[in-house]
């Protein structure tokens, strides 16, 4: 083939390829715009929300309560920074506090002494913040599963919701994660009683979730069949945030 013919042929192929490639690129751009301009569902575009929900279903299918978060020697533990003051700003009398339980065996509140009567468990594990930092923390408390066995619903429920006494902060948990053996209702950190900024008198420590689920100053625990509201999930974050 001489140069003129060869160039003619390749020019035709080039035009065809670039037109087709350009059309595909334009379609991808339109698709991206479409995604970027969808109506919001709890703080993010709804197709992204659906994608998070599909990831959640996959994660729940493969969730294995036998897989534990790595633990560390106590000497590595530090007090983490006190992120998140929502739910801790209302006036509060720790001495008069009792824990409300809804959907459980009885409607009577649970005292801190009753929580402390449950087997005492210590765990030194990483607290992982959704912001990306992590800190090795020493938590002491009662297993949530022990609490649920005594005060929870008679029949297994799918969800657990918790909120602060003022109702300002609230988290939703799938039951499998709440019942994980490392999930604690925690009353001590770093071997000392909880301080107010870390959620005295009782907080959650749930290593199978990002730290935002480790709610401080728990006022109410609710055993529920429907998905409980979650403070950060209403603000664009994944509801499940399972690790």
């Amino acid at each position: 083939m001489n140069r003129v013919d060869a160039e003619k042929v390749i020019r035709r192929r080039t035009r065809r390829s670039f037109l087709f490639g350009g059309a595909v690129a334009a379609a991808a751009f339109v698709g991206g715009r479409w995604l970027y301009t969808r109506r919001e569902d709890a703080g993010i575009r709804w197709p992204l929300r659906r994608a998070l929900e599909i990831n959640e279903q996959l994660a729940r299918d493969f969730f294995d309560a036998g897989r534990l978060a790595p633990t560390f020697p106590v000497s590595m533990a530090k007090m983490p920074r006190a992120n998140g003051g929502v739910g801790l700003r209302s006036s509060f009398d720790a001495a008069a506090w009792t824990l409300k339980v809804e959907g459980g065996r009885s409607d009577s509140p649970v005292t801190l002494a009753q929580v402390k009567d449950l087997p005492r468990v210590e765990i030194v594990t990483e607290l992982k913040c959704i912001e990306g930092w992590s800190e090795v923390v020493h938590f002491t408390g009662a297993r949530f599963s022990d609490f649920a066995a005594k005060y929870g619903a008679e029949d297994a429920v799918e969800y657990v919701g918790m909120e602060t006494p003022d109702g300002e902060y609230y988290v939703g948990l799938d039951s499998d994660s709440a019942m994980h053996p490392q999930t604690l209702l925690c009353y001590e950190m770093d071997g000392k009683p909880l301080t107010a900024v870390h959620g005295a008198p009782l907080r959650l420590a749930i290593p199978v979730k990002y730290g935002l689920k480790s709610i401080k100053r728990i006022g109410t625990i609710r055993f529920a069949e429907s998905r409980p509201a979650d403070y950060w999930a209403e603000r664009g974050y994944d509801w499940y945030v399972g690790l």
Binding site: I44, P47, L48, A51, L52, R235, D238
Partner: peptide, 10 residues
């Protein structure tokens, strides 16, 4: 952050 995580995980 929340938006970035959602795009990343899709």
């Amino acid at each position: 952050l929340s938006q970035g995580m959602a795009w990343h995980f899709l």
